[in-house]
Design a protein around this nucleic acid. Structure first.
Length: 423
RNA sequence: GGAGAGGUGUCUGAGUGGUCGAAAGAGCACGCCUGGAAAGUGUGUAUACGCCAAAAGUGUAUCGAGGGUUCGAAUCCCUCCCUCUCCGCCA
């Protein structure tokens, strides 16, 4: 959520930045400013009325204590008017605040100056490519066929017990999942992140805090009986650990990592591009979250990007890094790097990580602040990134490393899998 | 799920209708004291929004959340959330 005071003071710039994100309702900016004017005006009026009646109440109290009942009664006669006025003003204020809130949450975050203008994924900027694209021998298979051939994943069993998009991992397939999770968590710990293990369901306030609600309501599974949402990413519970928190200056930066399953309804996704592990309703992911001083957030973003790239390099996967264009970026991000690995058998890039700086967009909703050098409270910057999402990593590992003798496990994973080949 | 108790500031904890943003203590910050430290001592120590060009200042709101009663609510009433104890159930 953008800060009203910022919008008020930087109207032109806000409109300019929103245009980069291809935002379709620029008129909301002026509506927000108008509502804020009205809000402030109404609050001033209400405060004045309250001050009057507070003073009168105090006076009545004193008179009563001194036994001057008649004089107290005389003042009481005036209070009805203020009460009525106050009631009306506070109802008006409530309505204006609600309307302001309803509009301001529709404004996406402002993109960073380096974000390219653009609408479609084709307009994303390729920052770098790393690693040679492997040439597979003829007869090589896509991962869903390899998964069946080596008895690693059973998609039909998942359909039977739950539904499409809920695969069952078996044998070395299951062990590979566990190995990747442990490897990613260990790497994060080495990089200074503290591990957390989290609830997989969150309440409405948490969904709002990180920006999933109200605009992406339909993408989360909802447990209506208890009003809880299944998390679409560990970002939600981790970042919400710091909701309504004022950190001491020396507590920054906060670095957390967590493994969780992620649940996504993915309504409206069908067809060949969601085949196999490409798009699932439940998948595993290790997430990184940082809460940092605003001055350092873009340096930290580069560090997180480097960390993710390091993982891909250790796994020996060819990848590229994209700087997302305005139109392809999420609602909440100011700058996002996507990491994609090359899926050799499918012949296309698969997104395996997304690293973003949200600046104060989340912290404003979360009321996540720190005490700055002047001793005043200030909104912190939040960042997060996947490091990494498992299914597409598994897909490319299986496809890219297939040989006539089986699938070779990357060396860094062998201590975790305790087998070198899937055969 | 049933019965009971309770939710006050960073913490402990007072406060059952008015002078309460809230006693007292601890903690923390700064100062004095000291060769240095401890002890002692003094001062300060919530957040948000508004008014003001800004600072100073000042107004309003906040004692789990929301509503109600009242001239006036931390205090009374209602609803919800949470914690604890006992019972039930249970990995």
């Amino acid at each position: 959520m953008l800060q009203v005071s910022y919008i008020r003071d930087n109207r032109e710039q806000v409109l300019e930045r929103l245009a980069v994100k291809n935002f379709k309702q620029p008129e909301l900016v002026d509506e927000v400013i108008g509502l804020d004017d009205k809000r402030r005006q109404t609050q001033t009026q209400l405060d004045n009325v309250s001050a009057q009646s507070n003073a009168a109440a105090k006076q009545i109290g004193e008179l009563m204590r001194n036994g001057k009942k008649e004089e107290a009664e005389a003042i009481k006669a005036n209070t009805g008017k203020w009460k009525e006025e106050g009631k009306q003003l506070s109802e008006l204020l409530g309505a204006v605040e609600q309307e302001l809130q309803d509009k301001i949450v529709l404004l996406p975050n402002l993109p960073h100056a380096s974000v390219p203008k653009g609408i479609t994924p084709e307009e994303n900027e390729v920052v770098l490519e790393h690693g040679a694209i492997p040439a597979l021998p003829t007869g090589s298979l896509p991962h869903w066929e390899l998964a069946t051939k080596y008895n690693l994943i059973d998609f039909e069993l998942g359909v039977k017990i739950t539904g499409a998009g809920f695969p069952v991992y078996k044998g070395k397939g299951a062990k590979l999942q566990r190995a990747l999770i442990a490897f990613f968590l260990d790497e994060a710990e080495k990089a200074g992140y503290e591990e957390v293990m989290l609830p997989l369901m969150v309440n409405e306030a948490s969904g709002f805090g990180t920006g999933q609600l109200p605009d992406k309501e339909g993408q989360m599974y909802f447990v209506g009986q208890d009003n809880l949402y299944l998390i679409p990413t560990a970002e939600v519970p981790i970042t919400n650990l710091y909701r309504d928190v004022i950190l001491k200056g020396d507590e920054l930066p906060v670095r957390n990592t967590g493994y969780t399953p992620c649940f996504r309804r993915e309504a409206g996704s069908y067809g060949a591009h969601v085949r196999g592990l490409n798009r699932l309703h439940q998948f595993d992911k290790v997430e990184l979250v940082q809460v940092v001083h605003p001055d350092t957030s873009y340096d930290v973003l580069e560090q997180m990007s480097a960390h993710v790239q390091g993982l891909l390099q250790k796994l020996g996967l060819p990848y590229r890094v994209l700087r997302l264009c305005g139109g392809d970026m999420s609602f909440t991000a100011a700058l996002t790097y996507d990491m994609e690995t090359w899926s050799a058998a499918q012949g296309r890039w698969l997104e395996v990580s997304s690293v973003s700086n949200f600046e104060t967009f989340q912290s404003n909703r979360l009321k996540l602040r720190f005490r700055n050098a002047e001793g005043k409270t200030q909104l912190a910057h939040t960042l997060n990134g996947s490091a990494l999402a498992l299914p597409r990593i598994v897909a490319t590992l299986l496809e890219n490393n297939q040989t006539e003798n089986g699938i070779k496990i990357p060396e860094v994973l062998v201590p975790y899998t305790r087998f070198e080949w899937i055969d």
